[in-house]
């Protein structure tokens, strides 16, 4: 019996597609909700700095004067915490992971959000 079992396994292995993903040639396996890296949309950011407070590894720096939002990709643990708490949904999670690099660096995004003339919200953003 064991012989037939072996033949069956061997035949199946020959006939079916290999499971290996030929990675650099083929695309990587990804799902729509895979956590890759955080993307910042400068046109919606109100500089509330909730993401800075909620980041468990303090990877985000927000400079209100210079209007920049910086993230250290080599400190971000891709936990989705900032995306969950962002009140204006200016942060989103992209499925593409950060590429390996030979040097560490900080990525900078510019905040282009301009406060609407009616000052309703209590944010510190200069108009």
């Amino acid at each position: 019996m064991a012989f037939f079992e072996m033949v069956r396994t061997a035949l199946r292995t020959v006939l079916q597609q290999p499971v290996t993903i030929l990675y650099p040639a083929q695309a990587a396996k990804k799902t729509p909700i895979s956590r890759g890296h955080v993307v910042h949309d400068g046109s919606k950011c109100i500089s509330c700095s909730i993401c800075v407070k909620k980041c468990p590894s303090q990877a985000i720096i927000l400079n209100k004067e210079a209007k920049t939002w910086q993230i250290d990709r080599f400190r971000c643990v891709v936990c989705n915490s900032c995306v969950d708490t962002c009140p204006t949904k200016c942060l989103s999670m992209d499925t593409q992971y950060t590429a390996p690099a030979a040097a560490k660096g900080i990525e900078t995004f510019t905040i282009t959000y301009v406060k609407p003339p009616k000052p309703e919200k209590k944010d510190e953003q200069k108009p």
């Binding site: 396996k29 799902t31 909700i33 956590r35 891709v78 989705n80």
Partner: peptide, 12 residues
């Protein structure tokens, strides 16, 4: 795991 949580080993 990845399809439902977004992470392979750290589900979060």
């Amino acid at each position: 795991m990845e399809e439902t949580t977004g992470g392979r080993v750290i589900q979060g």
